[in-house]
Write a protein that binds this DNA or RNA. Sequence first.
RNA 1: GCGCCAGUGGUCCAGUGGUAGGACAGUGGCUUCCCAAGCCACUAGCCCGGGUUCAAUUCCCGGCUGGCGCACCA
Length: 599
Amino acid sequence: MSEERTEGERLAELAKRRGYFFGASGAYGGAAGFYTFGPQGAALKSNVEDAWRDRFTVQEGNFEIEAPTIMPEPVFEASGHLDGFDDMLVECPECGTSHRADHLIEDNTDLEDAESLPIAEVEDLIAEHDLQCPNCGAHLAGEPVEDFNLMFETNIGPGSSTPGYLRPETAQGIFVEFPRIKEYARNSLPFGATQIGRAYRNEISPRKSIVRTREFTQAELEQFVDPERDEPDLDSVRDVEVTLYPATEQGADDGEYVETTVGEAVEEGIVGDAWIGYFLGVAQEWYERVGVDMDRFRFRQHLAGERAHYAADCWDAESEVDGDWIEIAGFAYRGDYDLSKHGEHSDDDFTIFRQFDEPKTVEKSVVDPDMSVLGPEFGGDAADVQSALEELAERDPSAFEDEEVSVTVGGETKIVDADVANFRVEEQTVSGEHITPHVIEPSFGVDRTVYTLLAHAYHEDEVDGETRSYLSLSPAVAPTDVGVFPLVSNVDELVDRSEALVDDLRESGFSVVYDDSGSIGRRYRRQDEVGTPFCVTVDRDGLEDEGPDSVTIRERDTARQVRVPIDALVEELRAVTSGERAFDDLVEAYDLVAPGADS
RNA sequence: GCGCCAGUGGUCCAGUGGUAGGACAGUGGCUUCCCAAGCCACUAGCCCGGGUUCAAUUCCCGGCUGGCGCACCA
């Protein structure tokens, strides 16, 4: 059958030829890591996004936001991307090649983990050891070492006084807006916020078609929960079967998958957190619905060293293409890391007030210093003395038993009369406490999902001794719902009726392609190749036979056809494209048209 | 970023120091009542820059883009 081209090569060729995706800006030589989605690809991607939105936003009762792709520098100082997302590069003065400065040091000295050293020290080390360019041998001493940050930098407004960055993940847009989002959620956990949008990373080396690009689309859900109180609806996915590849199995070459159910995986602790387990189950069903080949799909647990330091547990959804596993989604338990960071760096409140079941009465030691005494006595230090007293009251109430109490302010001991401090123990009613919600983050790569769907949908078979290639895309995501053809194009009545049908179907909400060129077989193959699930053909038999006018509906994957009255067409197409009915049901209900029977 | 390989119509390829040919696809027409048929006509190409040369798509250098391996992937 097909020669030795890989799945990826066939896919790239089909994608270019049929308008799924192609390298962007080709007229000017192109730009690595950027792709344009053509008419088919844009429609497919949009359908994938809609399907994701329906499942992870609408069905979950979450809400979607759309944050800017550019955010000011402090956002990324808080998130850690500014410090933790860069490499140290040194450029050779002779040949102009760039090298990882930390790697040069590690390779040529006994030092390890040079990445964590300050830049000045790295420069000193290069001079001290007289390191040379690995490419041309030139001496690198004295050359500046620069940070290469993987974020795209820009300036907000004129001048360069306000640096901004293109977000490297959509998530920060949600975290940053948490204070407002929580108001919208009426300050009650749990709730989830989603976002579908672009993210940008100035990758050193973009690879593998649309799998690793510099601009890509993510669909992310940030599920905010109270770690002590909130539980997912695990029952709804308890019996969903999943293929797991736990960290413990990945050490050996012959590590084995664990075939189990979501419920068991959580109960046995293979998946450490119920929320993660829940989303694995939801994702499993969603991927199946949009058309991922589940025999080429698994959930892989991150190894301990691979995990971000804040992630308690992390699983990836992976799909297989050309024998390689590619990460198409990540499921991370991020704890309170992100919200805490933004809480520390900004003035806003990133906590939620959690009421106790019953208000608690607590005894609290307080002071209420007489500032009319402290003021004149301590001058500018008065306020500091006050807060030192408050702090001492909480820490050591016994200090107020004597007539005088001493506190240390700015290295000096200050003596205050106990009367002036006005120490007392109060009963306070506390109705709750502020907590920082924990976050479970299912994060989907939309482009990689599209890539997987195309790769898994690509099939070849034989029809009448000829090879045929077709995309078995799910009707849920296929760019076009239905093709409409007159069986032959030189009969006006067939053409007119076909065109009228196109209008009807479009008004009914279908995405329709009309085609009357060449032979009918060629038109079928064309639609097969772009994955249109159904074709409707208007023929003379259907108009001239006794009974109501009828047309044929052809199923893409099997090339079977049934004859359906035109009056029932919209209803039946809606049923089969929504998945409500299988084509087999139509075969039961209507006459099967045998290929070539009429000729 | 490093190393190896590659870049010719829309796609996949052949070829040449004197500016190119096929297959498939596409368009128009003829034919056609069910699966890439046939006939006629047409559209359309040597990645970019520099060098060598009378002459470069071809040879050399650089760049860009792509593939693979390494590295990277917070």
